[in-house]
Every structure is written in C-alpha cells, then in structure tokens.
C-alpha cells in the first residue's frame, strides 16, 4: 500500500479513462441527440479491437491498425443508422430494441470468427517502461493518455467549432426548437453515428496492446460506457470526459486495493448518481 502503488494505479486509471472516453462519447452523443440507447456500441468497440488486432499483427503498424478500425467501424455504424434505425425514426424504444438484435448478431459473429482466445499485440516502439522518480511506468499506458488527450481535443473542436457540432449541441438540449429554426436535425443523425462508431472502433483497437481483445470485451465496456454516460450527464462533453476518468481511476484503484469490488464500484457509483443527481454530475 505504498504511495508508489497509488500513483501507478491512478496513472493506469487515467489511461483506462482515455479509452473509456472513446467508447462513451459516441454513446452519449447518440443517446443525447437521438434518444437511442445504443446496445450495439460495445460490439463496435470489440469489432474495432479485432480488426485493429488483425491489421496490427499483419502490417506491424499501430497507426494502420487504428485507422482501419476507425474507418471500418464508422462505415458499419453509418450502415446501421441509415439501413436499420432510420426506418424506425421516432420510435426510440423500437430503435433501442433493434440495437439489441444487432449486438447479438455482431457479438456472436465475432465469437464464431475469433473464438474464445484473447489476442494481444504490442508495438515494438512502445514495449518498454519508463522510470520517473523511482516509479516504473509502462510506455504504452502513457501513450494512451497522450493519445486520449488528442482525441478528446479533436472531439471538443468538432462540437465547438463546426456547424454540425453546434447543431448537435443545440439539438441535444432542445431538438424541436432547432427544427423550428429551419434546420433538419435528422441530417446530423448519420454523421453522429459515423463519428461515434468510429470513435468506439478506435477505442477498442487502441486498447489491444494493453488488455487485448476477447469475446466479452464488447458487453463489458458497453456496461462501463452506460455508467459513464449516466454519471457524466447525457450528451455532455465535459461530463463524459470527467466521468470516463473518474470511472477509469475508480476501477483501477478498486482493482488494486479491493479487487472484489472492482466492477461493482462503478455500478454503485452509477446507481448513486441516478438516485441522487439524475441529470448527471456535470451540466451542459
């Protein structure tokens, strides 16, 4: 129980939080904008990880794998939205149920293709450790933190400085009023899905060198992402970022100090927020 353990746990937690942000920010936008609880989101995270792994291991390039995972999952997400969900627009319960079917299809397909094995691949350039003040850190986890910061900044800029971003933020608050101004909000749905799914695929792929990819990865991280969206407040960028880090750090601290509570803590946190502050921890 040294200070060293504590610092390592916190750093690992932030690294995990960076990945969690990639899966939950898309989920949060989709939920906030369209009202859809997207159960297929975790499957996209997992498929991104598998595709990332395949490209990593065959090209030996981290960048190519991440790009392939992002691109393929953007495409798949866009297809799910325009091919399936668009036909049920207005029926948010029906849409959520359809994503449950999609989740079942994708998870099962992945299981048939890749089986029960855990696949892992680490880039040579980030294999090592760094010693800072007598504490040893894994290079890859530090890379994750930096990479996560870049992605968060990119998402923030999209939402803050583009037309689509402004429309999405406004529509999360009051969709009807945005339409009353003459803007067809539905046109932003597909782009939100493409963006969110790409981020999920990227998050899954970038996690492979640390934790690997295995068949229950999708559902596990989907549940974490649900907790984060609830804790951070639906549709809130700042909230999702803060909650991702909070959940990441809490999970890692619990895993070090009270392992039997590791996952349960997250959902206790989620329950507490739902009961005490249903609008989430962060406003707007």
């Amino acid at each position: 129980m040294s200070l060293e353990t504590l610092i390592v746990a916190i750093v690992d937690g932030i690294a995990l939080g960076a990945t969690l942000f990639m899966i939950s920010s898309g989920l949060s936008l989709i939920f906030g904008l369209m009202g859809i609880v997207n159960f297929a989101h975790g499957s996209l995270f997992m498929l991104g990880a598998y595709i990332g792994y395949e490209v990593f291991s065959s090209t030996n390039s981290l960048a190519l794998g991440l790009a392939a995972a992002t691109a393929s999952m953007s495409l798949l997400g866009g297809t799910i939205e325009s091919g399936l969900l668009k036909r049920k627009s207005g029926d948010v319960l029906g849409q959520a149920l359809i994503t449950i079917g999609v989740m079942l299809l994708l998870d099962r397909t992945a299981w048939i293709i890749w089986g029960e094995t855990t696949y892992k691949w680490v880039p040579d350039s980030l294999k090592g450790v760094i010693e800072l003040g007598g504490i040893i850190f894994y290079e890859y986890r530090l890379f994750l933190i930096a990479f996560g910061a870049v992605i968060a900044a990119a998402v923030f800029s999209f939402l803050k400085y583009t037309n689509y971003g402004t429309i999405i933020r406004a529509a999360i608050e009051d969709r009807e009023m945005v339409e009353a101004l003459g803007i067809d909000v539905r046109k932003t749905f597909t782009i939100t899905f493409i963006l969110g799914s790409g981020l999920a695929g990227l998050g899954g792929a970038v996690l492979v060198p640390w934790l690997g990819v295995y068949p229950t990865l999708g559902i596990t991280y989907l549940l974490y992402a649900f907790a984060i969206v609830v804790i951070g407040g639906i549709g809130s960028f700042t909230g999702t970022l803060a909650a991702s880090l909070l959940v990441g750090v809490t999970q890692q601290l619990a895993a070090y100090y009270v392992p039997w509570l590791a996952e349960a803590t997250i959902f206790i946190l989620m329950l507490a927020v739902l009961l005490l502050r249903p609008e989430g921890l962060v406003r707007g």
């Binding site: 402004t166 429309i167 933020r169 406004a170 009051d174 945005v178 803007i183 406003r283």
Partner: peptide, 17 residues
C-alpha cells in the same frame, strides 16, 4: 427555450442557418 449551453452568438447563428 433558448439553447442554454450555447453562447448568445451561437444561438443567433443557428437562427441564421
């Protein structure tokens, strides 16, 4: 029903869409 999390300018620009 103004968009509270947006700035006044952003609110006006949405109106000018």
């Amino acid at each position: 029903r103004i968009f509270g999390s947006l700035t006044v300018r952003e609110n006006l620009l949405l109106g000018a869409a």
